[in-house]
Write a protein that binds this DNA or RNA. Structure first.
Lengths: 249, 249
DNA sequence: ATAGCCGTTGCATTATACGCAACGTAAGGA
DNA sequence: TCCTTACGTTGCGTATAATGCAACGGCTAT
């Protein structure tokens, strides 16, 4: 809509691939070099680009500033919103967003199932650590001593036949989750429901939240649940990007 | 120089302080809201901003992309150049830039002393690990096991009366450097020269390089050398910012 | 139901971004 | 040393694109 701004932003995008000269940049946006120079000067005054030597321009430090400040401003809930809603409408299953704060796993957002059979849960509610997929995801990358500490402090109340009931079994489960990249709750919390969860990561590759899908066993058997994994991981990835995460080599 | 671009960049800067409404943004750049909207739309098409709800705009994910790609493009040498040259011309002492690669500490840049008495060194040369300030800085934040490994693999050739000659003494020295935030070489390498070095950090707060000043003892006594510390740390900080580092709380 | 608040759209106007051409400067070769 | 070439830079007239205005439309709340 705004020509000069559009051109300038194109320049910035171009510079992301490496330092460029005035002429190279002029060719990209197809304008006279004097026009390019004016744009670059303005960008330079805002520290979006900076000169490198005499013949080259490169991205400036304002980008670092902005990216860092944008990260501070962002909260997972708003950032993950679109990806989670999309997953919810596409699959129709209940989607939860949970985070780990002050030693507790909390549900911070929820997208209800469109199927008639719903499950009970509530935003703000605490999730039991030993029998939910989200808790496994959120805990599995804690530093090892801290993980042991947490595992031993849990009260392993057995809720179903599948509930994990010992620190040792739980720590082994966390190891599995960490290497698999996702977690399941195979009817460990409630007899008739199973869940699958994946991590949402931030700019430092740290786990900032967990997204899960909860499905009544009557709608989908365990293999069916596992088949949701690629879809769930793609969603988690999209949400991660919104949180400042970028793929590592 | 380009009015609309200037306004747009101002908007981006403003959004860094948190999500804003159309009117708030219009007030900042003092234009009609329709003008602001056109700018925002263009910014949005490049993913520099995105809508949050219906009434708010916030910074978009392009910033993360750009910042990450800019970081990959940057190399320490070019990024630190200005800060180091400035330090060199202001103090007149020899300034070195060194990095740790493949188990070796290498001088990657050098700004010669303006004083008549110069020291011998060369870009590309390997710095001995046990008796240089830059090596201490570059090694002091390695993970503990790796640090022990390196310390025990060093050949502690005694070069002066002050040279550190045992792994134990060296590891203790690294601990001191880590907590102090800078390192010295108190004539441990050559009898008549002492150095002080500080870390240059990157976006993940990791040490990407070390900057040092080397001063002949006849020009400055040890207390004089230590008095250069604030100046050196400020320089290292400035160079760090250029490398994508941002102050942590 | 109605009023008030925003965001949005179309249009006329003129400010402004643009291309042009001349100039300046630095590097390279004869 | 001087000339050539290849850049970046500057000033200026013009046409276009950015702007402000005013009317419209979709909310929400009372």
């Amino acid at each position: 809509m705004s020509q000069s701004l559009d051109r300038a932003l194109t320049l910035v995008g171009e510079l992301a691939t490496g330092p460029k000269t005035l002429d190279e940049l002029s060719n990209v946006i197809e304008v006279h070099k004097s026009t390019t120079m004016r744009l670059l000067r303005t960008l330079e005054s805002h520290r979006f680009v900076q000169r490198e030597g005499v013949h080259h321009y490169r991205l400036g430090t304002a980008l670092f500033d902005l990216a860092n400040r944008a990260l501070e401003e962002r909260d997972v809930r708003r950032s993950a919103e679109n990806a989670l809603r999309e997953l919810n409408t596409r699959t129709g299953y209940t989607v939860h967003l949970a985070s780990y704060e002050d030693g507790e796993v909390i549900y911070i957002d929820k997208y209800d199932s469109t199927h008639p059979m719903r499950m009970y849960s509530r935003i703000g509610r605490r999730a039991p650590l030993h029998c939910t997929a989200v808790a496994k995801v959120l805990l599995c990358e804690l530093p090892e001593p801290r993980r042991r500490e947490v595992a031993h402090s849990i009260d392993y109340v057995p809720l179903t036949a599948n509930t994990i009931t010992s620190p040792e079994a739980y720590l082994a489960e966390l190891d599995r989750v960490r290497s698999a990249g996702y977690a399941v709750d195979n009817a460990e919390h409630e007899d008739f429901i199973h869940c699958i969860a994946a991590p949402i990561r931030g700019a430092r590759n740290e786990v900032v939240a967990a997204v899960s899908m909860s499905v009544p066993k009557v709608l989908l058997d365990f293999d069916g649940l596992l088949a949701l994994q690629p879809d769930l991981l793609a969603t988690a990835r999209a949400a991660s990007v919104e949180c400042g995460w970028s793929p590592r080599e």
